[in-house]
Amino acid sequence: MIEEKISVSITVNDIEYQENVSPDLTLLKFLREHLGLTGTKEGCGNGHCGACTVIMDGKTVNSCLMLAVQANGSQVTTIEGLGTPDNLHPLQKAFIEEGAVQCGFCTPGMIMSAKALLDKKNNPKEEEIREALSGNLCRCTGYMKIVQAVKRAADYLKKKKEDSSL
């Protein structure tokens, strides 16, 4: 049997990409190798660590544990879709200010999980933050500073919303 490429249309960070992909190409490899979006990291490659977390249609997924064909027709947001070095997303700003980044490998995944939470809840309790981040492992920080960073980001987002409604 010869491999049959599949035509997929995936919108990543508001840009629609139409590509022919191998059936066994993971969403992670599609993002990193086809689109060059290397902010999403490969950690364990088996869904255990959460370093590859992206948001698909409003929900977090392990991009290493999904085939690109499963994402056909979906809207995907990666860490590159959040902010720029000159204009950081409140979550990115808060992670830096709280010292929630050490080696940084888990950080893109952590931020995407935190974003999915803050998109739904603007004032999450600590246990809700911990639950939202329960699929993301960090070997450096001990999580305390990450949780504090999410709380700080929630405050920033609240303030931003209040300012924009004035």
Binding site: G47, G50, T53, M56, K59, T60, V61, N62, L65, M66, Q70, S113, E131, A132, S134, G135, N136
Partner: peptide, 9 residues
């Protein structure tokens, strides 16, 4: 079961 990411799929 597992994690939020896995439960979403």
């Amino acid at each position: 079961v597992a994690s939020p990411q896995i439960r979403n799929i």
